[in-house]
């Protein structure tokens, strides 16, 4: 690894002060993504500011029936937290679908949000990549792009956001609490991550001198009719080729409320309000779900190796919505997709 300085932040205010004073510094919490990037010479911070000991490790109920998750709660603890398992099982399942137990034990909730969007070329410092080196070009568009995006892409970048947790957070309409020199503010999960456009080097709308302090879940948890389905090249411990988070509220066979988000297909978790509109008020059956899939995938475009993702996503959306409607969410350990 390259040499860097190491300091600890004594509290949130100190963390903000330290990062504002040294723009080439980075916060480190779990470190699972950042240290990996440093080892590949993709991230080159001159100083790491250790925020892992800040008191941001609680999970607590909010006055309006939701839950506030401290940014430093480890992914494992969040997935197995009784409140999350009971009221937000979609979130629990999505977390357990990602990474390995060792990584989940280290990775923080806030860190999961700011892990870099991923592409093999981004990680290979010998190749052009607009995300790593703006203006150098995109190697993936005409390269080996099996894992890359099919939605929301630009001429400059077709990388995907790899988080499973964030796909569920998109469905649950989580709110990100951040603090910076100008004070605290909130960012809706949908507005937190960015599409690449002409600035793929910027993954999120978090300012460089801001810190995530908490993730808030609204009261609605969809704990009866939900499913998270992740399709990947291995049965476990691999990034999604396509993943789907689905949550429904049913009145008999009729869909009262519906939310669907896709992972592994875009620079951010992918939702489409229009797709959810065509679900509401309709019968919960395969043809309704297929209509929604068509709208969610409107404008999808493959780049050669990843063309298969469009058809795969269409089938995965229908299957996941069917699982949610039946009340039989995809199992984490039984790999059969029913």
């Amino acid at each position: 690894m390259i040499p860097f300085q190491y300091t600890r932040a004594s509290d949130v205010a100190d963390a903000i002060k330290q990062i504002a004073a040294d723009p080439s510094a980075k916060f480190i919490a779990g470190g699972t993504n950042l240290l990996d990037l440093i080892k590949y010479d993709v991230a080159t911070p001159t100083r790491l500011i250790d925020i892992s000991r800040l008191p941001l490790g609680n999970v607590e109920e909010t006055a309006n029936g939701g839950v506030l998750i401290g940014a430093l709660v480890p992914n494992t603890d969040l997935a197995y937290h009784p409140l999350i398992e009971a009221r937000y099982p979609l979130l629990s399942r999505s977390i357990l679908a990602g990474a390995s137990q060792q990584l989940r034990n280290m990775a923080s909730t806030g860190g999961n949000l700011v892990q870099r969007t991923r592409c093999f070329y981004f990680y290979d410092a010998t190749t052009p990549c607009n995300k790593r080196e703006p203006g150098s070009g995109c190697s993936a568009i005409d390269g080996i792009n099996r894992i890359n995006a099919i939605l929301g892409t630009s001429q400059s970048c077709i990388a995907t956001h790899p988080s499973d947790m964030c796909v569920a957070l998109a469905v649950l309409e989580a709110i990100v609490h951040v603090t910076g020199p100008a004070g605290a503010r909130t960012i809706a999960l949908a507005d937190f991550h960015r599409l690449p456009d002409n600035t793929p080097q910027i993954d999120t709308n978090l300012e460089p001198d801001e810190i995530i302090t908490a993730i808030e879940l609204p009261a609605k948890g969809f704990s009866t009719n939900y499913s998270y389905l992740k399709i990947r090249d291995r049965l476990s411990y691999a990034f999604a080729l396509v993943s789907v988070a689905a949550a429904l509220e049913l009145d008999g066979d009729t869909i009262k409320e519906a939310r669907v988000a896709l992972g592994g297909v875009a620079h951010k978790p992918w939702r489409s309000p229009a797709a959810e509109v065509v679900l509401r008020g309709q019968r919960a059956d395969a043809s309704t779900f297929a209509n929604a899939a068509d709208i969610l995938l409107r404008g999808a475009r493959g780049f050669g190796h990843n063309d298969f993702k469009i058809g795969l996503a269409r089938r995965a959306i229908v299957r996941t919505l069917s699982q949610a409607a039946r009340g039989t969410p995809q199992s984490i350990s039984d790999k059969k997709i029913r």
């Binding site: 480190i28 470190g31 240290l35 137990q101 060792q102 990584l103 034990n105 280290m106």
Partner: peptide, 13 residues
């Protein structure tokens, strides 16, 4: 008591 990857952990932390 928790299993982690020691390769992605800084000793100073």
């Amino acid at each position: 008591g928790r299993r982690i990857n020691s390769c992605l952990t800084l000793a100073v932390m």
